[in-house]
Each structure stands twice: as C-alpha cells, then as structure tokens.
C-alpha cells in the first residue's frame, strides 16, 4: 500500500510537465479572450453561454483535448521515455500500477478542467454580465465538467494502455465520434461521451432555457441518467484499462 500510494504521488509529479500545462493555458486563454470579447459586445445569457462556450467549445473541444493529452500520457510518457520498466519490476500488481498511474493523472486533469471552466464562467460574469452570481453559474456547470473529465480520462487512459499510437487514435476519436457523430440524428450519438455531457448540461441549465435546439432529433436522456452513464463509462474503461494492462506484455520497455 505504501509503495502504491507513492506511485500515485510519483505519477502526479510526472504529469506536471510544463509543456502540457502551457498547452492547456494557451487553449484556455483563447477561449477566455473569445468569451470576454463577445461578452463586451453582447452580454452573455446563461442559455447562450451554456450552449456555445461550455457545451460546444469547452466540453467538445477543450475537455477532450486536455484529457486526451493527460490520459494517453498515463502510460504513453513512460513508454516513450522507456521508463515503464522501472515501474513494472516493482512489487506492485500490474492492474494496481495502472490504477495508480491513472489516479495520479486525475487531480491534474480535474484541476485544469474545473479551473478552466470556472475561469470562463468568471470571465463571462465580469466581461459578459451573466445574469447570475458566479458561484451559481459555476455550480450549474462544474459537476458536469468534473464527470466529463473523469469519463474522458478513463477512456483515453484505456486507449493508451492498448494502443501504441493512442494519441492519433484519440484525436481521430475526438473529431469523428465526439464532434461529428455527436451531431448525427438518432441514437448513434449515444456512443459518444459528449452526448451525456451535453444531456447533463441541458438538464442543469434547463431553468434558464438551456436545451437542445431540436429535442426530437437530439433525444436527450435525463440529467441523472446522463451522470450515471458517465460514471459507468468511467468505471468500465478504468476496469478495461486495468485488465488490458495486467494482461499485456510490453516488449519495448527498455
């Protein structure tokens, strides 16, 4: 247990690479400038802010990209640097090694996603005159962002455990499944994580007119159902990642 807890801490420290944080910061600044500029010209409403900024720009672009970077790096960094050997020879079972690595990445992923989402809400409040106090706006969106982060991280972590070119596959997934398929009418979009995130957002902002443009086409699920789905997605991909990592041999460790 002692060595496992240390591995969680060790993995977290390894994730704190400046390049990664700079990418997140740049993406956040771009979004923040967009939110601030638009807010100064035409004040934000909860509905428009929730749909275009949190629902589209943040949850379908910023969040997948950040979690893709962190999730695939859970094992990818060690495979690329050929340092996985130093972990795999320790008296830690392989499934728990994977779990520790993923848990090590989780605080950073949550810190970045929640911090950025809160920052955008703050910019929209200050520059865009959102009609609600910042705390209320944040409380409306942050639980969705948190669950979305966990689900995406588990998914991309699993990709990293299974595929050597997980980043490329992850990028393809973001654009094909999360962005493109998320727009397709019917139930096919339900295989995307972003569908459940949007359902949660619509449910949270329903009191302020935040809803799908065409409910008949979008066919949303209830907020609780969406939250449960995201948790199930996270749990399933976490379990899959642990299973795959425990079974798989990595011949390129050194």
């Amino acid at each position: 247990m002692n060595s496992w807890l240390y591995l969680v801490y060790f993995s977290l420290r390894r994730q704190l690479r400046p390049q990664r944080l700079i990418v997140a910061l740049i993406l956040f600044l771009v979004l923040a400038v967009l939110v601030g500029t638009r807010g100064l010209m035409d004040p934000w409403k909860i509905k428009s802010f929730g749909r275009w900024i949190i629902g589209l720009s943040f949850c379908r672009f910023f969040l997948p990209i950040i979690t893709l970077t962190l999730g695939t790096a859970v094992l990818g960094d060690d495979r690329e640097d050929k340092t996985l050997v130093y972990l795999s020879i320790r008296p830690i079972s392989r499934w728990s090694l994977y779990l520790a690595k993923l848990l090590g990445a989780l605080p950073l992923a949550l810190g970045i996603s929640l911090g950025a989402a809160f920052g955008l809400c703050a910019v929209a409040s200050v520059c865009g005159g959102l009609p609600l106090p910042l705390s209320e706006v944040a409380w409306m969106f942050l639980p969705t962002v948190a669950l979305g982060t966990i689900a995406y991280l588990a998914f991309f972590g699993w990709l990293g455990a299974v595929f050597r070119n997980a980043t490329l596959i992850g990028v393809a997934h973001v654009f094909l499944v999360e962005l493109f398929m998320g727009q397709v009418p019917g139930v096919l979009k339900r295989i995307s994580i972003s569908f459940y995130i949007r359902c949660m957002l619509y449910d949270a902002g329903s009191g302020h007119g935040l809803k799908p443009r065409n409910t008949a086409i979008f066919q949303p699920v209830e907020g609780d159902e969406a939250a449960a789905s995201l948790l199930v997605v996270a749990a399933v991909f976490l379990a899959l990642g642990m299973y795959c990592f425990s079974r798989r041999e990595y011949r390129d460790l050194t």
Binding site: S3, Y6, F10, D81, T83, V85, Y86, L87, P91
Partner: peptide, 22 residues
C-alpha cells in the same frame, strides 16, 4: 537500456525506486 527519468537527480531517482519497493 539507457533510459531514465531524466529530470530527476541520481539520489531522488534511487530514493524513488526504493520507495516503490516499499
């Protein structure tokens, strides 16, 4: 292989590996 956690010092690397061994 000649692979390491390059940013770590020799001492912190060896100590970290020791902690991973419990």
């Amino acid at each position: 292989g000649d692979s390491f956690y390059e940013d770590m010092s020799v001492l912190s690397f060896v100590r970290a590996m020791g902690r991973l061994c419990g």
